[in-house]
């Protein structure tokens, strides 16, 4: 276990944000889900007792009729914003005093850095380069991520959970998002920064990044890849349909969906699942391309 190497990667000034992210995201996930479960308990209670449902102010926060529903922005909101600003400034200032922004040798076009990595937030995409061709990993996938994100409100027909934390009422949506955000985006970033060493080779955390490491891998294309692709799409579509019409509640939501919304959702979910599948195919079975055409290959 080369702790020295691990420490140097962790302590490199430019990797500090990822360490910060690795701490902040779990915290906030826990913080958010905690409030969701609280709301879920309240919802269960209200559904069990309709009379209460009529009178209850329907929030977990305490409330009494004599309290105002709304409070003045000044001072109550502005003071906390001011506090937040102060804290952020202190963090930023201390961070700037302690750590220096990196400045490496002057740019030298004919001396390739090994490993040469994109900034940490694009490292996820760079990791995708291993599994997909550059046009896919570099352009299509980011484009789809953006469009996918934008499409969420228009394909989520579930009216519940608007304005309050809930898990029970939006299980599918939250799980999908967590999978997309944590499972794919952050994991890929984590791999790209801490696991991918020189030559973009896989180095388990703690292994020494050795420039001379030679790994013998023979990747082969999947015969009849197109068939596999079609089979996968069909299976995925069926599985997704199965999932979103699992319970009567889901069926109710599904009923609200228009055909176009349904198709768009299926399209994005299938693509999202395709990513980890492709990664598994490559990591476990050394399969490179599924579909090879003279113009492009997947």
């Amino acid at each position: 276990m080369d702790l020295h190497q691990l420490w140097t990667i962790l302590a490199t000034p430019d990797n500090v944000p990822i360490v910060l992210l690795a701490l902040a995201v779990p915290f906030y996930t826990w913080y958010g889900l905690r409030q969701s479960f609280a709301n879920d308990r309240l919802i269960a209670q209200l559904e069990a007792d309709p009379a209460l449902a009529r009178t209850h102010h329907r929030k977990t926060q305490p409330w009494r009729p004599e309290w105002d529903r709304e409070v003045h922005v000044w001072p109550y909101l502005l003071r906390i914003e001011f506090l937040a600003a102060l804290i952020v400034t202190v963090i930023l200032l201390v961070w700037s005093i302690l750590l220096n922004a990196p400045l490496e040798e002057p740019a030298n076009p004919n001396l390739t850095m090994n490993p040469s990595k994109a900034p940490w937030y694009f490292v996820g995409l760079q990791e995708m380069l291993v599994y997909f061709d550059p046009w896919l990993a570099g352009v299509v996938i980011p484009f789809l991520i953006i469009v996918g994100l934008m499409a969420i409100p228009y394909i989520d027909t579930n009216p519940l959970g608007s304005g309050y934390y809930t898990f029970k009422q939006r299980k599918a949506a939250i799980l999908t998002f967590l999978f997309g955000f944590l499972g794919l985006w952050l994991t890929m970033i984590f791999i790209g920064v801490f696991v991918r060493g020189p030559g973009w080779m896989w180095f388990w955390p703690g292994a020494t990044w050795d420039h001379n490491r030679l790994v013998f891998e023979v990747n082969r294309d999947l015969p009849f890849g197109a068939l596999f692709l079609a089979a996968y799409t069909a299976a995925a579509a069926w599985a997704i349909h199965k999932l979103i019409t699992l319970t009567p509640f889901h069926r109710k939501i599904h009923a609200r969906m228009s055909r176009f919304q349904y198709l768009v959702m299926q399209f994005f979910l299938i693509l999202m699942l395709a990513l980890p599948l492709k990664i598994l195919l490559r990591q476990l079975f050394r399969i490179k391309y599924l579909l090879v055409t003279p113009w492009f290959n997947i």
Partner: peptide
């Protein structure tokens, strides 16, 4: 304009080369 920035951007823009 140091090696870190130069190569990071080179990697980034190399993806642009592959835009369909």
């Amino acid at each position: 304009d140091d090696q870190l920035g130069f190569w990071a951007v080179t990697v980034g823009t190399n993806m642009a080369r592959a835009t369909p």
